[in-house]
């Protein structure tokens, strides 16, 4: 699979009558939606309504209380998706470059140092440890996972958090390119990212 080429598989996601809970609290019930190849879905809802839990359930990190989540059309389910959570999954003592190489090995991709330096503007800090990065730069580094290893489905939790205007523009371009090559992006946001979504899903109790 080429790094940014079109995906051979045409993924689709179907969520049916989904019900999620955290602890004893039911977050929402009976949520259904479907997303086809090329879709950009914005998940909206107030704080604590279950946006993050919905993404984690689709990623398979959270077991649903009831309902179905089906990911179809992906050749290898273990290579189907990326999850960028609100925690950036970075180690303070490791350098930006070390993270890119680690992810390339873990997810099976290429470190794409030059491309990441160019698009996400991380070139000047490539050799520095994460502890000296700003919040926005750390977020950009977390988003670089999407570039390092191609996956047809992106699950993004507040992807624009801490990003400046330039960062948001890059994020929108990345999502547009991802959709154009047949991928699906699902983002939980509290304000729209900019590019109009192909559909919006509201989660509420």
């Amino acid at each position: 699979m080429s790094a940014r080429g079109p995906f051979r598989d045409r993924p689709s996601i179907r969520v049916e009558a989904l019900s999620l809970s955290r602890g004893q609290r039911v977050l929402f019930e009976g949520l259904s939606f479907a997303a086809a190849s090329g879709a950009y879905v914005e998940v909206q809802g107030s704080n604590g309504s279950g946006k993050t839990s919905l993404l984690r359930a689709i990623a398979g990190l959270l077991r649903p209380r009831a309902g179905q989540i089906a990911i179809e059309g992906a050749e290898d389910p273990s290579l189907a998706l990326h999850y960028v959570g609100h925690a950036n999954a970075l180690k303070r003592e490791a350098s930006v470059r070390a993270h890119l190489h680690y992810w390339a090995g873990l997810f099976g991709g290429s470190p794409s140092e030059d491309y990441v330096a160019q698009t996400l503007g991380l070139g000047p800090v490539m050799s520095l440890p994460v502890r000296v990065l700003s919040q926005g730069q750390a977020r950009r580094l977390a988003l670089s996972r999407l570039i390092v290893a191609p996956r047809p489905i992106w699950l993004l939790d507040e992807p624009a958090a801490a990003l400046d205007e330039g960062g948001k523009a890059v994020l929108n371009e990345m999502i547009a390119a991802h959709r154009a090559s047949g991928g699906i992006a699902i983002a939980a946001v509290h304000e729209p990212l900019g590019a109009p979504p192909s559909q919006a899903v509201r989660v509420a109790a």
Binding site: A59, G60, L61, D76, S78, L79, L81, H82, Y83, G85, H86, A87, N88, A89, L90, K91, W103, L106, F107, G108, R145
Partner: peptide, 22 residues
């Protein structure tokens, strides 16, 4: 604990190689 808190554990779970190996 550090992996759980900073989100690294999620990435390990989502990567293709089995968690046992990691």
């Amino acid at each position: 604990q550090a992996d759980l808190e900073d989100g690294s554990l999620d990435q390990m779970l989502l990567s293709a190689p089995p968690l046992e190996l990691i």
